[in-house]
Write a protein that binds this DNA or RNA. Sequence first.
DNA 1: CCATCTTTGTGCACGCGTTCACAAAGACAT
DNA 2: ATGTCTTTGTGAACGCGTGCACAAAGATGG
Lengths: 255, 255
Amino acid sequence: MATGRTHRTATRSRGIPEATVARLPLYLRALTALSERSVPTVSSEELAAAAGVNSAKLRKDFSYLGSYGTRGVGYDVEYLVYQISRELGLTQDWPVVIVGIGNLGAALANYGGFASRGFRVAALIDADPEMAGKPVAGIPVQHTDQLEKIIDDNGVSIGVIATPAGAAQQVCERLVAAGVTSILNFAPTVLSVPDGVDVRKVDLSIELQILAFHEQRKAGEEADAQADAVLAAEAAAAEKAGKGPDGDVPAVMPA
Amino acid sequence: MATGRTHRTATRSRGIPEATVARLPLYLRALTALSERSVPTVSSEELAAAAGVNSAKLRKDFSYLGSYGTRGVGYDVEYLVYQISRELGLTQDWPVVIVGIGNLGAALANYGGFASRGFRVAALIDADPEMAGKPVAGIPVQHTDQLEKIIDDNGVSIGVIATPAGAAQQVCERLVAAGVTSILNFAPTVLSVPDGVDVRKVDLSIELQILAFHEQRKAGEEADAQADAVLAAEAAAAEKAGKGPDGDVPAVMPA
DNA sequence: CCATCTTTGTGCACGCGTTCACAAAGACAT
DNA sequence: ATGTCTTTGTGAACGCGTGCACAAAGATGG
């Protein structure tokens, strides 16, 4: 059983590196802004700055798509917008369902960025019978019973899970069984999916914990010498004791 | 100027690889679940399955923290929960402010996963005077004017930005100037921050676009031979024409 | 038509992260 | 005490992603 595989292993096919794919939306956003300001061309240096990346990286990224730049001039903004859009598959419309219309689900349904680029909220689905029929963001919520029918009728291949953690795996399985092959998971759980299904997760709690780690590290660097000594002593003590179920909390706090 | 640097370059210090740090919260979640079921020990194989990663990777990750396992037995669940919590800095309390209390901000404020692990919503801040005083998730919203005072009074070092894209950079600068050194950005913009400030971004739109790319690729693989021919011809034509502002959309759609 | 100047596209080297595969460590039974 | 069996911890190889640095390409001016 393939448990919690986040991504396909192989990126063969046309061979665009996964890291590059992840940056294309960034470039596209920057380019769209330039396009709205009617800027005709842009250099790799300028565009890289706008997208927050290294210019060499950007050029290499674009080289995977083909040679769309003109030496001595830069890139044609409009043309690049079109090429990236096409590469990302945004020239077609992607119907999306959102499952779990709680606080988060409702916020997602109201999020404008959805419709802007090829994505269309085809349906909102919730398990609560009370919700059924109520409009959220102008779209009536439908009951989970209808899930399979909705997926099928609308040709949905992308599903967004915004349910509580406990329900996520079950919802995921129903979505996949109904034909969904890409899932964006907001529930704090690891989803198990069969091969060929892509899962991307967005997890607030994990992001905060990563920030906390770095924050703690920053705080620790200030009191470097002392902290090092303390940690060393503590580590030694713990090792000697074998298992210290409750050591003292160092309590290094900025303020 | 350091534009849109997502992360510190160096991970020297205690030398835990960034990739490992990003997985620690995953392990912690799985371990917490085991702890609640009163499971005393767990093998790397089992825990890896629960966290959705390779068991060798998990063991290497843990090896960076020290040798906390027992050969032939596995890892002590409670002890590991404690060690990882400590490493991530979750044994202390992190006051957090959320700026921008729209649909998303309110959803975040209501999100339970916040309080569960060391994070505490110290304040909700919004630019709309109408919002001031209104309670969201039991916490009264305060006006942006108070931002600096709130950060200072509560010793906040982590800020969450859930404003519209246009306001994000400005809010970011005020947060940083007031002393915030870690930012979780939900606004669809690249933030510029000075060195020493960590930014992590959560971007729904980007995630969807990445999924769309893979989805398109899957659809393309089915009609492999034909598509290849079409694409080759198209590419050749485009190259010859120099710049085709509007080629035909292949229109490979699942349903 | 030629020289100069800008900017792309890429070969190359380096470092990080992943995975394999196995020796060492310890539990457990006899 | 000894042997067996399980599971950890890690050395080593590999592959991907990043960034430097430069040659080639083309625009632009004389």
